Simulated scan of single mutants.
Amino acid sequence: MRCRISRVDHLLGQAYYCLLTDVSAEERLTNTRLQFIESINHELRTPLTSLSGSLNLYLDRFGGEMTPSGRKLIDMAKRNADRLLMLVNDVLTLQAVDHERLVITLGPVSTGDVVAEAVAAMRGYADSFGVRLCAADDVADVPVIADERRLQQVLANLISNAVKYSPRAGQVEIGATLRDGDTVTIWCRDAGPGIPAHARTTIFERFAQPAHEPAVQATGTGLGLAISRELVSRQGGRLELDTIHVNDPGGKTAHGTTFSVVLPIDRSEKAEGKAD
């Protein structure tokens, strides 16, 4: 039972009333939903991870011997498996956030290692779209306190968006830059069409409305950026956007989007000694 007591002010004074509600049905629905999400984790994420890894191994071993049509089919299967895996991870993360079960395990992380791991993990995904994914020439390698697994989840979302909106044979670049004495920025930059002005705040909301016209809009759930912002915030950072839309003044030659994860630098004695 849920008990709620409220006060009502009126001309003759105050009155209090108590409302008792049977929430048994709500509890059953919540438990059913949790069991469904847990089954998604077991029945979908594990086989998808295995499938994606197997396709990677197959391409590495036999990719050079395959016909163009066969390679195209395998690339399509790999891309769809990766997309479904990211979707499952987003749903599980969203469920954890809503039920206050999201676990953030903070520890020392090197920005150089974070960038290198993100590029290595997502390079196959970018290749399947005909997009070159690379690290910047000068990546700031400084210590931060973060959850490395959740940080990689954020970067995977940012990179996948950048790849989907990049032109074929285009490039997506990942880097890390010192912003000032206390913060470092891990950024993802593309040369896509940019984000129109009307959508630059709403894209961070859950199930956001499409930002582009149908011919440009990429498929997705509208959850990736909302989850990414939540994960970055839980690690003491913030997610920023810098974009020039193709229809903005000068956008015909300089359009594109950069998402930046801004994190505080770890200034502990242990981190300082390691840096030295």
Rank of each mutant, 00 (worst) to 15 (best):
L102N: 03
M122W: 05
T183W: 12
V115Y: 03
E117K: 15
K72I: 03
R71C: 07
Y165A: 01
P167L: 10
T93P: 05
L85A: 11
S166L: 02
I195M: 06
G112Q: 04
G192V: 02
R168M: 09
A136K: 07
A126W: 00
L85Q: 14
L73M: 13
N157M: 06
P108C: 09
S160Q: 11
N89F: 04
L155K: 00
S128L: 10
A176R: 06
T111L: 04
N161V: 00
R150S: 06
D141F: 00
L158A: 01
F204D: 06
A191H: 15
V184Y: 11
G63V: 02
L73N: 11
T201K: 13
V97P: 01
D180F: 14
E117G: 05
L59I: 12
L84W: 15
C134W: 00
D180L: 14
D137V: 13
T185F: 02
M66K: 07
V142H: 04
T93S: 10
V88W: 05
Y165M: 02
A191M: 13
R150Q: 09
P196G: 01
L102P: 01
D113M: 12
A120C: 03
R150V: 00
Y58M: 13
N157S: 14
A156E: 09
Q95D: 15
K164D: 04
A146F: 04
N80C: 03
L102I: 08
A191I: 13
V91A: 05
L92F: 08
R79P: 03
V142W: 03
G64W: 07
F62K: 11
P68W: 08
G70K: 05
P193H: 10
V115C: 07
S128K: 09
V172S: 08
R150I: 01
F204Q: 08
R189V: 12
E117H: 14
T105A: 13
L92Y: 09
L178D: 09
N80S: 07
M122D: 12
R168H: 13
G107A: 11
L92K: 10
S128W: 08
T177M: 06
Q153I: 03
T105R: 14
V91E: 04
I174A: 07
T111I: 05
A135I: 03
D113N: 15
T201I: 12
L158D: 00
I145D: 06
A116Q: 15
V131I: 10
A199S: 13
I203T: 02
A199H: 06
K164W: 00
D182C: 13
N80L: 08
G70A: 08
N80Q: 11
F62T: 09
V91D: 00
R83T: 15
D82A: 15
R200H: 04
F129E: 03
R61G: 03
D180M: 14
T183H: 15
A126E: 01
E100M: 05
A126R: 01
R61T: 06
A162I: 02
E65C: 12
H99F: 06
M122G: 05
E100S: 09
E148M: 09
A118D: 03
M86C: 10
E117A: 15
I145V: 13
D82P: 05
E148V: 10
P68C: 11
R79I: 06
